[in-house]
Design a protein around this nucleic acid. Structure first.
Length: 755
DNA sequence: AGGTTCGAGTTTTTT
DNA sequence: ACTCGAACCT
């Protein structure tokens, strides 16, 4: 018993009930900040340490890779590192990707199959529409893809979709779906939805595999269950149907992925699916002040058809929630930056404890600029941003071409990038040849002489490129080497990535890129090499922990690396130890918490978003989104909105969000920087010109070059130059102790010491 | 082949 | 307002 005691220490009654539940289905309805993650990690430890269940029989599914990593770390603190690594903690998508690779032969897929991201999907879709000669004006690729995605989430394949298509539009979608899927198949590729779909069919059509996996994953735990879709439900269900040891945790009030096919019924009907289910409610909140919790509750009660939870906390009352009315997005950003700076300086709040949330990504830009100009360190939670860069996508495309010879979409991307004398016309000719001879495009690389439509120069270029690709594939073990020595030391992944960057000419290309004088793109490629190295080290360590002492082949490392790269999510980029303010969308904020939270753009049209206006269901999802944002805050919460906002270069008046009017007066405090005369002049009638320019000029005149000034943070400095930029005035100042900085006069609180 | 210009689309949220 | 792609030019 003494082994178990620490696992139950400090748990409340319902928490203990959930942690010590061993067999049979369990549903944990967990309000925000109710210690849900704690319950899951303790339960894993309890099952292993307390009950004696083998760690490899435990499967935990989280919403993001980052959450999976954190969960593994927390379990490792309760168990041993080795035990923790023996459990499977993954997202649905990464679990599926792994299973598909493992059982690729059953599905008729190459193990090196590509996972297509949104950009790849778009390319494949454009190809499909082109092949079918369908007008992209009437049938935009993006909406085609979203229709197909919806179908896939409901486990409808192309044939199934065609059967139920009842109107012209749907019949067209059916045709496109069929074509799109054929292209993916030809390329040996799956899109995100296919990962789930293929796993479902793997489990359905191969009873032996299903039996194997049921034996393996006897205890299944699924977090954020309110955001699972039908396919995910089927997978969870198939795995746990026999043992019935399934634990689902979630909160219907935090369901925010309905638009992506998430089915809130999964959690609401859990007790119908599993009549034997035990249900535990976690309603005590450990995160937020009474005031913040009251605000959140007052908001969410406006949703109909929900079951009310009695959220409560022992935490102090705390400060009122501040509703901040600004003139426009610039003042809004400036106000948040100032307030954060004040908290940092006066109340010792670390930068890493503060976050800014917004409904749509585009709102981050002005906030970013302002933070940069105020010299406040910040990070944006966009895990994918790095992999979205052109140079990185190119490099990854090369690796995919190596790993998956069928992947024509990626091959076409890189075949003449950087330019190597294979013109678009040559590519067209080769495609036509491949089609006429019913031959994979890829094979022509090794045999371009047969394509008589190519002139000899082009043939040479293609042959040379084909040889390079072949060398890579031999090194990586994708194609067999002539005198293959299985005991030869395996090349490192890092070295291989470097080889590809060098031999492809990408490195040289970006080294000589005149449009990038700072060599940023080159540095990014270097960063990719580093990430490959880190991945490799981690991978080898895991293999060792798992008791695999044999050499890990480069091929295996490469495939695993590509898989990981394809599945990074935005929220994966959040690093709270970074000592910087974090910016993210409300969706990415799910599952996180910060002492100080500012939500910007809390206006009708943004939150709730315009697109949700005519649908009460979607409006409720927007309200849940606001609820998620509010409940991330521990101590201080700012809800900001501007009276005017500039979108697409057009300044429009706004209306404050209806959600703000749902907050009771006794928990909020109105702050109105927009009535500050200083700011009014500045921005309110932006297009007018006269007021703005004269103000900027006046400010510029106050701080002539050479003037001695004092800044609250950077101390004394001399003005180098002052430049009015639109509504703002930027001043470059050489500080005695902090170096040269560019500040915006409006926000910098500069004090003139001497002219 | 590489650079330039012009126009369109962009911004809802993401694995 | 800004970025990105296609078409066009040198």
């Amino acid at each position: 018993m003494s082994e178990i005691d620490p696992l139950l220490e400090g748990l409340t009654e319902p928490q203990t009930q959930a942690v010590t539940h061993v067999d049979g289905p369990l549903l944990v309805l967990a309000g925000p900040g109710s210690g849900k993650t704690r319950v899951i990690t303790r339960r894993i430890a309890y099952l292993v340490k307390g009950v004696g269940i083998a760690p490899w029989n435990v499967l935990a599914i989280t919403f993001t890779n980052k959450a999976a990593g954190e969960m593994r770390d927390r379990v490792a603190q309760l168990l041993t590192e080795r035990q923790a690594r023996a459990t499977t903690v993954a997202t649905f998508h990464s679990l599926c990707a792994r299973l598909i690779r493992q059982y690729a032969d059953r599905l008729g897929l190459p193990p090196g199959y590509s996972i297509y991201d949104t950009a790849d999907q778009k390319r494949a879709m454009k190809q499909a529409l082109e092949d079918l000669e369908i007008n992209t004006k009437n049938f935009p690729p993006a909406s085609m893809l979203s229709s197909i995605s919806n179908a896939k989430n409901d486990l409808l394949d192309a044939a199934g979709f065609a059967k139920q298509a009842s109107n012209f539009y749907d019949r067209t979608v059916a045709k496109v779906y069929t074509k799109y899927q054929a292209i993916l198949e030809r390329n040996g590729a799956l899109d995100f939805d296919d990962l789930l779909l293929k796993t479902v069919s793997l489990l359905k059509q191969h009873p032996d595999v299903l039996a194997e996996l049921r034996e393996r994953f006897q205890y299944v735990m699924i977090d954020e269950y309110q955001d699972t879709n039908h396919a995910q439900f089927m997978i969870a269900n198939a795995l746990s149907a026999e043992h019935q040891c399934i634990m689902c945790t979630g909160d219907p009030d935090q369901s925010i992925y309905g638009w992506r096919g998430a089915n809130i019924q999964n959690i609401l009907e859990f007790e119908q699916h599993y009549p034997a289910a035990e249900v535990v409610r976690l309603e005590q909140n450990y995160r937020s002040t009474k005031t913040i919790l009251a605000a959140a509750d007052a908001l969410i009660v406006n949703n109909r058809g929900r079951r009310h939870k009695e959220l409560w906390t022992d935490n102090p009352t705390g400060d009122p929630v501040q509703i901040v009315t600004c003139a426009d997005e610039r003042q809004e950003a400036g106000w948040v930056a100032e307030e954060f700076k004040r908290l940092h300086e006066e109340e010792n709040v670390a930068w890493g404890q503060m976050a800014v949330f917004y409904r749509i990504n585009s709102l981050s830009r002005v906030m970013e600029e302002t933070l940069r100009n105020s010299s406040i360190p910040y990070q944006i939670a966009r895990g994918t941003a790095f992999y979205d860069r052109k140079e990185i996508k190119d490099a990854i495309a090369y690796l995919r071409v190596v790993a998956n010879p069928s992947d024509e979409v990626n091959l076409l991307r890189v075949i003449n990038t950087p330019a190597r004398g294979i013109s678009a016309a040559s590519v067209k000719a080769m495609q036509a040849f491949a089609l006429a001879n019913n031959q994979p495009f890829d094979e022509l690389l090794g045999d371009p002489l047969r394509v008589t439509a190519l002139n000899s120069r082009a043939q040479n270029s293609v042959a040379k490129f084909g040889k390079t690709v072949d060398t890579w594939r031999t090194t990586a073990g994708i194609v067999a080497a002539e005198n293959h020595d299985p005991t030869a030391p395996q090349p490192s992944l890092r070295g291989f990535v470097e080889d590809v960057l060098r031999d492809s000419g990408l490195e040289t290309f970006y080294r000589n890129d005149k449009s990038d004088p700072d060599q940023e793109r080159l540095a990014n490629l270097g960063e990719l090499v580093t990430s490959a190295q880190q991945f490799e080290e981690e991978y080898l360590f895991e293999a060792e922990q798992a008791g695999e002492y044999e050499q890990v082949h480069l091929r295996e490392k490469l495939l695993a690396f590509l898989e990981q790269v394809a599945l990074v999510s935005d929220a994966d980029g959040v690093d709270s130890s970074q000592g910087s303010v974090t910016l993210m969308t409300l969706h990415a904020a799910k599952g996180l918490e910060y002492p100080v939270v500012a939500m910007i753009g809390v206006e009708d049209g943004l939150l709730p978003h315009d697109r949700a206006n005519d649908d009460p269901q979607e409006l409720e999802e927007e309200r849940r989104l606001a609820f998620v944002g509010i409940t991330r805050a521990e101590e201080r919460l700012y809800l900001c909105h501007g009276k005017y906002r500039t979108v697409f270069g057009q300044t429009m008046p706004t209306i404050r969000s209806r959600f703000l009017t749902e907050l009771p007066a006794d928990v909020v405090e109105e702050v109105d920087p927009s009535s500050d005369p200083h700011a009014m002049e500045d921005d309110l009638f932006g297009g007018g010109g006269g007021t703005q320019r004269s103000l900027a000029a006046k400010q510029a005149g106050q701080f002539p070059p050479g003037a001695l000034v004092k800044h609250p943070q950077f101390g004394l400095g001399r003005v180098v130059n002052v430049s009015p930029m639109g509504a703002h005035t930027r001043a470059k100042i050489d500080f005695t102790t902090s170096g040269t900085k560019t500040l915006i006069l409006q926000y910098a609180r500069l004090e003139l010491i001497d002219v």
